[in-house]
Simulated scan of single mutants.
Amino acid sequence: MKTGAKICMVSLLATTAAAAELPAPLAYECLRAAAPIHIDGKLDDPAWQQAPWTSDFVDIEGDSKPRPKFRTRVKMLWDDQYLYIAAELEEPDVKATLTERDSVIFKDNDFEVFIKPLPETASYYEFEINALNTGWDLFLPKPYNQDGQPDNSWDIAGLKTAIAVQGTLNRSSDKDHGWTVEIAYPLSAFANRQSVLQPRDGSTWRINFSRVEWTAGKPNEDNWVWSPQGVIDMHVPERWGYLHFSSRTAAKKK
């Protein structure tokens, strides 16, 4: 067995062992939006009031590690055109530097979406965004630990994103509350790579979310996620959560 293959096998065994000690992946019921969501980053559309929040993010390795120092959570909706994603990131000093599309966004503090619309296949999609609303989208035909190579030429056609900062961006002299992310992810975005059926009531995809947080003076970043991976690696799709599409409509609270 070649050295590279041995390393890959060791990595897979370690991942399997770590995952075996974790609880089952989380699940989220995604309600239908009563009307299209206005993407401005503010999360104030009436339909969002009825969409449930996910549980707060935890360390990527799970509950064996300390709880994140800042809160992160997500909610989702869908209609015939989009999967809507709203994220709330607590952050006392909101910062971002990268402005070029398809930069390596996780070099900044960021929010990341991993979507697997065809759960029976090895392929999946990744999107990262920072507080300057700079994005990076890519397609993975299979995970890195299976020798997958990222396809950076894939773009999410028709994607809508917006950021709202609750404070002042790139000003450390004051204290911020955080930043919010709003995404309208076109359900047609996968068509130039794969045939993905339109979701309907009862459809299930795999999905996970990650937050990269850098701390001054600390050499390595923190990785906080919705459904814990068990290892410091988001590219283990079998550990992602379950996204269940529902025909129930998210109506405004009375």
Rank of each mutant, 00 (worst) to 15 (best):
K2F: 10
I7Q: 09
C8Y: 05
V10T: 06
S11I: 11
T15P: 01
A17I: 03
A18N: 03
A24L: 05
P25S: 03
C30K: 02
P36A: 07
I37C: 06
H38E: 09
I39Q: 05
D40I: 03
D45K: 04
P52D: 04
T54E: 02
T54V: 03
D56F: 01
D56V: 00
D63E: 14
S64T: 11
P66S: 03
T72L: 06
M76Y: 01
D80F: 05
D80L: 04
I85P: 03
V94Y: 08
K95C: 02
A96T: 01
T97W: 03
T99E: 03
D102K: 06
S103V: 00
S123Y: 00
Y125L: 08
N130A: 07
L132V: 09
T134E: 12
F139A: 12
F139N: 12
P143D: 07
Q146H: 14
Q146Y: 09
P150M: 09
N152S: 09
S153C: 10
S153L: 12
S153H: 13
D155K: 15
T161M: 10
A162W: 08
I163S: 05
A164K: 14
V165G: 10
G167R: 10
N170H: 09
G178S: 12
W179S: 10
E182V: 07
A184V: 15
A184L: 11
Y185C: 09
L187F: 09
A191W: 07
R193E: 14
V196L: 07
L197M: 10
P199H: 08
P199I: 12
G202P: 08
S203H: 09
I207A: 06
V212C: 13
V212G: 09
V212N: 15
E213W: 15
W214L: 06
D222Q: 14
V225Y: 01
P228I: 10
G230W: 04
D233R: 08
M234T: 11
R239K: 11
R239C: 05
L243F: 12
H244C: 15
T249N: 04
A250E: 01
A250S: 15
